[in-house]
């Protein structure tokens, strides 16, 4: 998007302030895509990015009369979104699933970038794996990694010794990592099989042609 002053946008802002839905729809059309794509970089999850877009545009409509920006809404959109973005930033960066995803990408992305799982898909797979863990391990992981409690707090909450929490957590996370890795291995093996089959076919065809 350019930084030129857009006469059209000025008119749209003016109309929006007067309550024009048409102008609001047009502004949505102009900015929603950009906002979504920006947000999804931090949330990694499409659902959360959608929520941010929704939230921001609802706020814009509700406070349309108080809009001070006259030429462009680009900065206003950022102001409306920034708290949500910062929260998403910190929460994603520290998330267990993200950590796993980074590991996963480290293995997959170099050679097979085109077949890699999107974050959403990966996330749901990780949660599936977590659900297969023993109940205590599930609980400890959820409290430790999603609610960010300390081992001491978890111990109190679950009436376990701190040592048990530590053990369960490391055990659970290890199983989780192994299982997630196992997922990649299956997938990578599948991809190798696919390619080797393809090459086999191509090879036979090439041979036939040569003959």
């Amino acid at each position: 998007m350019s930084h030129e002053i857009n006469i059209n946008e000025q008119i749209l802002i003016y109309e929006l302030k007067k309550g024009s839905l048409k102008a609001f729809n047009e502004i949505y059309r102009m900015y929603s895509k950009r906002l979504y794509n920006y947000s999804v970089q931090f949330t990694k999850s499409s659902v959360e990015a959608e929520e941010i877009v929704q939230d921001v545009f609802v706020k814009i409509w509700q406070s349309r009369e108080k809009i001070l920006q006259k030429e462009t809404l680009r900065s206003l959109l950022f102001i409306m979104a920034k708290h949500l973005l910062i929260n998403a930033y910190r929460s994603t960066a520290n998330h267990l699933v993200y950590e796993e995803y980074v590991d996963y990408l480290d293995v997959v992305s170099t050679e097979n970038a085109h077949v890699r799982m999107e974050y959403d898909e990966f996330e749901s797979k990780v949660y599936k794996v977590i659900k297969e863990l023993p109940h205590t391990q599930q609980e400890v992981i959820a409290l430790s990694r999603f609610q960010n409690l300390t081992n001491k707090e978890i111990a109190q909450k679950l009436s376990l010794s701190e040592q048990t929490v530590k053990n369960q957590l490391s055990l659970g996370l290890k199983t989780l990592k192994d299982k997630v890795k196992y997922l990649w291995i299956i997938m990578i093996a599948f991809i190798f099989n696919y390619f080797s089959f393809l090459f086999f076919i191509l090879g036979t065809l090439a041979q036939k042609h040569c003959l």
Binding site: N25, Y28, S32, K33, Y36, N37, V40, E50, V53, F57
Partner: peptide, 18 residues
């Protein structure tokens, strides 16, 4: 920003909830 990550359908759906 890469604008290929979102479909028009998705944007329409978000607009619907807005």
């Amino acid at each position: 920003h890469d604008t290929t990550l979102v479909s028009a359908e998705q944007l329409n759906r978000i607009k619907g909830s807005v």
